[in-house]
Design a protein around this nucleic acid. Sequence first.
DNA 1: ACGCCCGCCTGTAAGC
DNA 2: TGCTTACAGGCGGGCG
Length: 279
Amino acid sequence: MPELPEVETIKRDLEKEVLGKRIKLVDVSLDRAVRRHPNVASFKSKLEGHKISFVKRRGKYLLIGLDNDDMLIVHLGMSGQLLIVKRTRDARDAHTHVVVRFTQGGELRFVDPRTFGEMFVSSLSQLEQIAPELNELGFDPLEGQMSWINFDQLLRQKRTKLKSLLTDQKFVAGIGNIYSDEILFAAGLRYDRISDTLTTQEVRRLYRAMVETLSEAIRHRGSSLADEQYKDLFGEVGDYQSQHQVYGRESQPCRRCHNKIVRLKVNGRPLFMCEHCQI
DNA sequence: ACGCCCGCCTGTAAGC
DNA sequence: TGCTTACAGGCGGGCG
């Protein structure tokens, strides 16, 4: 579920809410939520007593730094939520698997019905051992440095359909099924165009579409689809779904040309596009 | 080496 | 009405 804009929204709010707080105790009610650890106790003991020193995002991962070399790393999978709760006696939502309580009061709850999400603790130096995929992430579309010229070189090193490439975390980190469709529409490109055959102008359009779509989505605090799985730290839904051009708009008129948006199944996943605007 | 499919889970909603 | 089936934002592993 949560892609870069949703994770970034959570990251920014986490910075305001948990920076400097000390972890008093950790309660794990589903072992699977901390499955990278040999046992629950090893997860708890790495957190309890430590103070939170930074919050970062890498792709769809949240990194919550501690006052030693360790980080609490969170991946929300498809249905994970992080919630800040001020009153710790308030009833926990169903599927609350991990609770991190602070000495200053309040707690952070990890809720995840489908259990694809997870939490684990690692230092930077242990990451390669514990979670190698984090070290293999591609560039972050919103972290400066990259220009469309670099992007052009990266695209030409591959011969892959654009949809697969945009959702490949090793190529570019943070884009999933929703935003790849929105980006391709904004760029006016079909999902099955091959990455090393784009014209210079098309590469520029794709790069621009990627940066602008993701930035706009963050401005709207992410997308919450019909089932409202995505909620921010405070349990509020995002707003960007109202700006979607294609995702979830099957058979509705394209906002640009008024042709019907089509829904396809590509690599086993739903894909939405305008066959007139995307070439 | 790469692309594609499956499985991991559970809640929801459509279909019969 | 109620049971069954398909499907969903992600990702890693295995197969061809």
